[in-house]
Simulated assay, not measured.
Amino acid sequence: MVFAPPQRLVKALGETAPDGDGWLERLPDTLRQAVALRELTVDRIQVPGGRSSLVVLVRRADGTPAVLKLAPPRFRPEAERAALVHWDGLGAVQPLDGPETAGALLLERLHPDVSVRSLPEAKALLEAAGTLRRLWVEPPAGRVFETVAERTGRQAEAMRSTAVGSEVAAAGLVDAALAAREELVGTAPEVRLLHGTFRQSKVLAAERSPWLAVGPDPVVGECAFDLARLVRDRVEDLIGSPSGAATTRRRVRKLAESLELDAERVRGWTLFRAVESGVRALRVGRPRDAELLLEFAGWL
């Protein structure tokens, strides 16, 4: 099997790989072993694919289409497996039976090239929000997922160290984002299992349901946290629009209302997560992405 990982994955992993990490170099052997162990036939590599995992369209021994997903340990594939098992196909892609090996997931095949992002914006947001609501369930007993407070606490420390002496700190966005986080984590109204990285491209067309979520980075906490990434979907279009700021604030209100959440909490988490993403983009050398995200955050 001739194999070359998608360049999007290679670039993204290169930005975040710790020193000495050899996951990408081992990936061809890892893929061959995972395919052989499960008696799979490879149809094709999904391109451009994701930024944290390799997605391979495969067929099982009986001809059933499936997806093989391989991810480095730092992207918590075992937590993803546990969340998908707990959801058991309700609102999310269904994990399939077979050998379990670290970092490898065998999943039902959806329509990988058709996401809700293909719909007009208003319809896309409506369908995405409806899918997300189905995922917000009680966390499984006995399984410890990372909490929103833990994850954002790590991110807050990284934000502080990156922003010292930068224009971001001068603009006050980091301070505002950190202050919003402090207030939000101390007053969370509910504890649910969350998708963790939900956006339009994470909702794919399916056979057994119109739309199903994929690619969670699960976390436990309040539902408003899960909406924050969805609010800034199509951020390039928002920034390019003369009504981008008004559209963003209206989107916060509409999504909060549709899911019966506090709009101010949605706004606060959207601010924190946009600033965190912008500062992280600065840290890894993506100034254009940082500029877009921080301009968006300034509207909130």
Rank of each mutant, 00 (worst) to 15 (best):
P73V: 05
F75D: 08
G50M: 10
T64A: 14
E25P: 02
I45A: 04
G63K: 08
T41N: 09
F75V: 12
Q33D: 15
P48H: 04
L31P: 07
S53C: 10
P28H: 05
R59W: 06
P65R: 00
R32W: 09
P48D: 04
L37Y: 05
S52I: 14
R26E: 11
P65E: 09
L54D: 01
Q46S: 10
E25H: 06
P72R: 15
D43F: 06
G63T: 03
D43W: 10
V47H: 07
L57Q: 06
L31M: 09
L31V: 10
G50K: 05
T30M: 15
L37P: 06
S53Y: 07
P73G: 13
P77H: 01
R60L: 07
A66R: 05
I45E: 03
L68A: 07
V55S: 09
L27N: 01
R51D: 10
D43G: 08
V42M: 00
A34P: 06
R26S: 01
V47C: 00
T41K: 15
R51K: 08
F75N: 03
V35F: 07
A36T: 15
V42N: 00
L57H: 04
A66N: 03
G50C: 12
V35A: 13
R26P: 00
R76T: 11
L70H: 07
R32D: 13
V42Y: 03
E78T: 13
P28E: 04
L68R: 04
G63C: 08
L37N: 07
E39V: 12
P72E: 14
D43N: 09
G50Q: 10
P65L: 08
P77D: 02
P77N: 02
L70W: 11
I45Y: 00
L54V: 08
A34Q: 05
A61I: 10
S53E: 04
S52R: 15
P28S: 06
V67C: 11
L37E: 14
L70F: 11
L27D: 00
R76C: 10
V58Y: 01
L31N: 07
G49D: 00
A36M: 09
V35L: 09
T64W: 07
G63P: 12
Q46F: 11
G49S: 04
S53I: 03
E25L: 01
P28G: 03
P77V: 01
T41Q: 14
T41L: 14
D29C: 01
P28Y: 06
T64V: 13
A34E: 04
R76G: 08
P73W: 02
A34D: 04
P48T: 01
V67D: 09
R60G: 13
R74L: 15
E39C: 12
T64Q: 15
V35P: 14
A34L: 03
V55W: 08
T64R: 15
R76Q: 10
P73A: 15
S52P: 07
Q46R: 11
P48Q: 03
P72V: 13
R51A: 12
V42I: 13
A34C: 04
V55D: 01
D29K: 03
R59K: 15
L70T: 06
